[in-house]
Computed example of a mutant assay.
Amino acid sequence: MLASRTTLVLDAKTLIERLNPKIRGWRNYYGVKTAIKWLNKIDWYILLRFTIWWNKKRQERRHLSGIKDVRQMSSKLGLLKLAG
């Protein structure tokens, strides 16, 4: 979903602005305290897909290189989390 060719022209801030309403809706719908384990897994999946998108945008060969930097950048730009 995130790595399609049409989203590669977007910058990270625009993509995060598009994702945040969806994440907020999921959090409102699924945000029960008993589902925190599953919401953490979905947060991890969102971070992985965002990292793959970022690396494809930068034409990086390894899909998960720089995941630490992407995590910091996405939290600085305001990417919401489901579990927190």
Rank of each mutant, 00 (worst) to 15 (best):
R71Q: 12
S4N: 02
K33F: 13
R18H: 08
N20R: 03
P21C: 12
L15H: 00
E17A: 05
V32W: 11
K22D: 03
L47W: 11
K81L: 11
Y30N: 02
S75F: 11
R58N: 12
T6L: 09
K56P: 06
A35H: 14
V9Q: 11
R18T: 00
N40Q: 15
V9C: 09
K68S: 10
G66N: 00
T6K: 13
R5G: 01
N55I: 01
K76M: 04
I16L: 06
S75Q: 15
K57R: 15
K81M: 10
K13A: 13
K13I: 00
K33G: 12
L48N: 13
S74I: 11
W44C: 07
G78Q: 09
L10M: 15
E17S: 04
R61G: 07
Y29L: 07
M1A: 14
I42F: 12
D11C: 04
A35I: 04
N28Q: 07
L2T: 03
S74T: 15
W53Y: 01
R71V: 00
L79H: 06
L2C: 05
Y29Q: 01
D69S: 10
N40E: 15
L77F: 09
N40F: 06
T6G: 01
G84D: 15
V9N: 06
I52G: 07
R24Y: 13
L19V: 02
E17K: 09
A3L: 05
I46F: 12
D11E: 14
L19S: 04
T14F: 06
G25N: 08
M1N: 08
L39P: 02
W38S: 07
G25Y: 03
S74G: 03
G78H: 04
Y30D: 02
R61T: 06
L82N: 07
L80Y: 11
